[in-house]
Nucleic acid binder design. Structure first.
Length: 146
DNA sequence: GCCAACGTTGGC
DNA sequence: GCCAACGTTGGC
């Protein structure tokens, strides 16, 4: 899961412990949370749009999916007037801090070893998804690079 | 249903 | 700050 550190960093997650992952407004990203995530699943926490983009730590799925409350809030930047409580459009999970890496496993390093990762959504050209799948093998490989 | 225009993401 | 890539919107 990607986050801009200036908005919400791994350190911020450590401070709060658990964070509702509000604001995802992309159907593919939503579907990963709605359909593929199970409580306790590990999450790679990725810092984007910063000096050294990369994986900075581990979190875990801390809830089953539920409707993102910000979609119903007219005052929120994430308000969606086309959504309703009867048929919510946007779903999310809570994310719990597990641990911060000793260092950032930079995107640059992942790219340099792209052959080791096979088909990896993060490394696909033009990838812009904020929530994307990681295989067990890819996950282990990134942990080994920490 | 096509597709140009537009807005956003995110690396660099 | 630039700009490529991509998703969404809306006119037709």
């Amino acid at each position: 899961m990607k986050s801009e550190p200036e908005e919400f960093s791994i350190d911020a997650l450590e401070r709060v412990g658990t964070e509702p992952w509000t604001g995802v407004r992309n159907y593919q990203a939503r579907n990963f949370m709605l359909k593929d995530m199970k409580v306790g699943d590990p999450i790679l926490f990725y810092h984007s749009n910063c000096a050294v983009p990369g994986v900075v730590g581990i979190a875990e799925v801390a809830s089953t999916p539920y409707p993102d409350p910000t979609q119903f809030d007219a005052a929120s930047d994430y308000h969606d007037p086309k959504s309703s409580r009867e048929e919510p459009r946007w779903w999310m999970v809570d994310v719990r801090f597990v641990r911060k890496f000793g260092r950032t496993v930079a995107l640059e390093e992942l790219k340099a070893r792209a052959d080791d990762f096979g088909d990896f959504a993060l490394l696909r050209r033009g990838n812009r998804l904020s929530v994307l799948p990681v295989s067990a093998a890819q996950y282990k490989r990134i942990l080994s690079m920490e």
